[in-house]
């Protein structure tokens, strides 16, 4: 999986702190300026070289919601009538808010 992600420049591998991996379209993930700067080739960060980001501060359920948001945003980008997202759940809302602040998205 990881080797595949390394070669594939179109997608990026996001890893939660409990080891779950999410392969996400890079253009979608770059909605977050934090991720964008992590993947910036000029910065020469390990994340950019390996095309893999390990998030110490996110559990799998939260990271899953984040990935869902990336695709939700990608799908409805620039459109007028955007449906309300259905993936936010009460028990994760605050954690998600915490993480959204970190990702600045």
């Amino acid at each position: 999986m990881s080797a595949e992600a390394e070669n594939d420049q179109e997608s990026v591998l996001l890893v939660s702190n409990d080891g779950f991996q999410f392969l996400v379209k890079k253009s979608a993930a770059c909605k977050s300026p934090t991720i964008r700067s992590m993947l910036d080739k000029r910065s020469n960060f390990a994340e950019a070289r390996e095309n893999r980001i390990h998030f110490e501060n996110m559990t799998a359920p939260v990271l899953e919601k984040v990935c869902q948001y990336f695709y939700y945003f990608d799908k409805y980008k620039g459109m007028k009538d955007v449906p309300e997202p259905d993936f936010i759940s009460p028990e994760l809302a605050l954690e998600l808010l915490f993480v959204a602040d970190f990702l600045d998205c």
Binding site: V66, Y69, Y72, F73, Y76, K77, G78, M79, K80, V82, P85, I88, P90, A93, L94, L96, L97, A100, D101, L103, C105
Partner: peptide, 18 residues
């Protein structure tokens, strides 16, 4: 603005609504 709102806004709105 057109398009979806930021995740932060969505969470805040969700929290406020609930």
């Amino acid at each position: 603005s057109a398009g979806p709102r930021s995740l932060k806004d969505l969470c805040i709105k969700f929290v406020a609504d609930h």
